[in-house]
């Protein structure tokens, strides 16, 4: 299985192909559209991460060894970024997730989307993904 770092490197390489912001954002929009939606039953108040601008739903499960994530957002660009986060962290071991540095967001020039001022729920989603892994690790 690929490590978290390998998956991040792959994404960075993919984004290097884009010449301008438009291509990059068009790709994000594509990713957002293709993100497997969270099962409706998990789109609950408990799973919502409220941002000021957009909201995110996150659902996590585990098989005792690996963590699985599904998520959704009401904004498509946020969804595109969620798809990238999930691609990096889904199916990994809790310890790896807890220790992961999500450097790729900066490397592909989308760091502004993780700024607290964006208030799109993404920053808290990453925190929440890590919390879940941490809780599982502690068990």
């Amino acid at each position: 299985m690929e490590t978290i770092q390998e998956r991040q490197n792959e994404i960075i390489e993919e984004f290097e192909l884009f010449d301008d912001w438009m291509q990059k954002y068009e790709y994000l929009i594509e990713l957002g559209k293709s993100l497997p939606l969270i099962d409706e039953q998990f789109k609950t108040e408990d799973n919502i991460i409220k941002g000021c601008q957009s909201q995110v739903w996150l659902h996590a499960t585990n098989n005792g060894e690996l963590v699985r994530y599904t998520a959704d957002s009401d904004a498509i660009l946020t969804k595109g970024l969620i798809a990238l986060m999930i691609r990096v962290l889904d199916g990994q071991a809790p310890k790896e997730i807890v220790d992961a540095k999500m450097d790729f967001v900066d490397a592909i020039g989308l760091k502004e989307h993780l700024s607290p001022t964006r208030a799109n729920g993404l920053l808290n989603m990453i925190k929440q993904m890590k919390f879940y892994a941490l809780a599982m690790q502690a068990k």
């Binding site: 954002y25 601008q53 957009s54 009401d74 904004a75 498509i76 660009l77 946020t78 989307h113 799109n120």
Partner: peptide, 9 residues
């Protein structure tokens, strides 16, 4: 279209 998406673009 979500207003956030348009605002960012």
């Amino acid at each position: 279209i979500h207003p956030y998406d348009i605002g960012v673009l």
